[in-house]
Design a binder for these strands. Structure first.
Lengths: 220, 220
DNA sequence: AAACTCGAAATTATAGATAATTTTCGTTCG
DNA sequence: CGAACGAAAATTATCTATAATTTCGAGTTT
């Protein structure tokens, strides 16, 4: 199997998945020799992977002190929500004129899948697919890459908060966005999308010390 | 001042400066052994620096084929302008309530310096200072980092287009933004800022083959 | 003459080794 | 008993060496 990617990219991808899924907790140390050994690689590609994770905001590196999984708090959840709102609205405005009926149908199907998802992971997958479908046609690669990074952060917030317990509901926002797009009411669709992405859910979490605190995540 | 940063960070910084200033042309190859030799380093920190430049959009890496300075065209200039407009407007809305008279005075001073700048480099420096002054108080580090990267891209577009020949003018937009902020008319200020950042200038450039084509850059 | 093949040179990717720094943990001193 | 110190261990950052891949050109074939 000749992988087309570099070793560093593979390692970065796997570690990113673990961080997003919550398998690697915020604050956890990433020790280069341990990671290298696990992947059967030397530490050089591992260090390159770390630099990538750092740029994506998933890890934090302090010189001579190693790399840790980035921590986050409510203010960063809010920040990512606001950035997503601003950038996704922009993308949608540029994407709208290129949307076809087939794309909108596929987005509706993704919405249905999200509504019937039985766990948070499959809901997130369907939700991301919805957003990607209606935004990709904007043809702005740099913008789409930035949105992708923000979605990854969103997913991390979500998986950390909703480790278990997920009840699906009808996604009125998605349907309203699609209805507006079908009527070519771009501004309306962008406005709903912007509001939709800024909705932050709260869930009580049992902390290690026995008490309960609240966890927050973007639920759009 | 010995920056206690890593070698990789120093190399990335220096290369980024060269790319932004146009000293390294779009498409130019970055050969790790040559760079390593120049900086008196091995190829390991050089490779880490490359990953950083890649994440910032300043370089493009193709596995086994090396790293090149990223190319860009009018559509990317437009894209960066739109992204800056969206994100800087967001930042300003969150920054407005924290702005003090001292900050606004400093921003006005930066505007004056930009108006009297004798070359494009010092104009860009003053312009960036203006934007940074009024946006930094928003206290959203991830947003500010994203804006920083976009400013770097903007500067690159500008320096590539306006390698020479620069005539200063009064910056009415900056003054209008400051006036609105002084009156606490945040929405008005954000609207002007958004329009301001999307202004794209055109300049005829003598190409190598003797003909002239147009170069474009964000002039806000 | 154009296209193709093969091989050498250049370059990138990975591995192994070394030096420098931080962390850890036991011991001593207040 | 707790804080502070210091050697040992672990970890990071860097360098040198080796392996793998691509590029480019000379020579051959159609």
């Amino acid at each position: 199997m000749t992988t087309r990617n570099t070793r560093a990219a593979q390692i970065a991808q796997t570690l990113a998945d673990r961080i997003v899924s919550g398998q690697l907790a915020p604050g956890a140390r990433l020790r280069q020799d341990h990671v290298a050994e696990e992947f059967g690689a030397s530490h050089v590609p591992v260090r390159e992977a770390f630099r990538r994770l750092e740029a994506q905001g998933l890890a934090i590196s302090e010189p001579r002190r190693g790399v840790r999984v980035a921590s986050f708090d409510l203010s960063e959840v809010r920040e990512v929500a606001e950035m997503r709102a601003a950038l996704e609205a922009l993308a949608l405005r540029n994407s709208a004129q290129h949307l076809t009926k087939a794309i909108l149908d596929a987005a509706e199907e993704a919405t249905r899948e999200g509504e019937t998802a039985k766990d948070v992971r499959s809901w997130e997958d369907a939700n991301r697919r919805f957003h990607k479908l209606i935004l990709d046609p904007c043809g702005m690669p740099r913008l789409l890459a930035a949105i992708d990074d923000l979605h990854m952060a969103s997913a991390r917030f979500l998986f950390t908060a909703w480790r278990s317990g997920w009840e699906p509901g009808t996604d009125q926002d998605h349907r309203a966005i699609l209805a507006a797009l079908r009527k070519s009411e771009t501004d309306e669709a962008a406005t709903i999308l912007s509001r939709h992405v800024r909705r932050i859910g709260r869930k009580p979490i049992r902390s290690a010390s026995g008490g309960t605190r609240d966890a927050f995540a973007i639920i759009g």
